[in-house]
């Protein structure tokens, strides 16, 4: 009887130290892994709760596991976190007015860059063509002049 009590106590102690809840099947593990990659650790801010060793990240992971064990869907778990911490907690922010620039910005920049490259290239082509005609005119002029000179001198 005593041994059993000691064992229970030991188990409780280790459970407290490890602080990590367990999941019952591989599908749940997979869901947990996916979820913990899209949730941000609010303390470290540039790490997901999967990557972070911060105390809070560990609590978030436990929270997610508990909710998975309770049978909640991914959407419900994400909603739970967003309700408390805002969209900032998501590594994949939803598309809305506030995040429109975030999502479309890179594409707009690529398009703007492309337009600028095309315009610059066209302008260079034109100015090169311009120099050529001007240079040719000047060349002709010089040639004519020297021809005159030859005529007069010769």
């Amino acid at each position: 009887m005593r041994m059993v009590l000691v064992f229970i106590l030991l188990f409780l102690v280790t459970a407290r130290v490890a602080g990590e809840m367990t999941l019952s099947n591989p599908e749940d593990e997979q869901r947990f892994n996916d979820l913990s990659k899209v949730l941000r650790c609010m303390v470290c801010q540039n790490q997901s709760i999967a990557d972070s060793n911060a105390e809070l990240a560990r609590d978030f992971r436990d929270q997610v596991k508990e909710q998975i064990n309770e049978g909640q869907s991914d959407a419900e778990i994400i909603d739970y976190m967003v309700e408390r911490y805002g969209h900032y907690i998501l590594y994949r922010p939803p598309f809305n007015m506030a995040t429109a620039i975030l999502w479309t910005g890179p594409f707009i920049l690529v398009v703007v860059g492309f337009v600028m490259v095309v315009r610059t290239m066209r302008r260079q082509e034109q100015s090169q063509a311009g120099t050529n005609t001007r240079q040719q005119a000047r060349l002709r002029e010089l040639l004519e002049k020297s021809a005159d000179f030859d005529d007069k001198g010769g």
Binding site: M42, V43, E55, L56, D59, F60, Q63, G86
Partner: peptide
């Protein structure tokens, strides 16, 4: 003790 209530309050620091 386990910090769960604080998560409900959206606490992170």
């Amino acid at each position: 003790y386990d910090g769960r209530a604080a998560i409900d309050w959206g606490a992170y620091g």
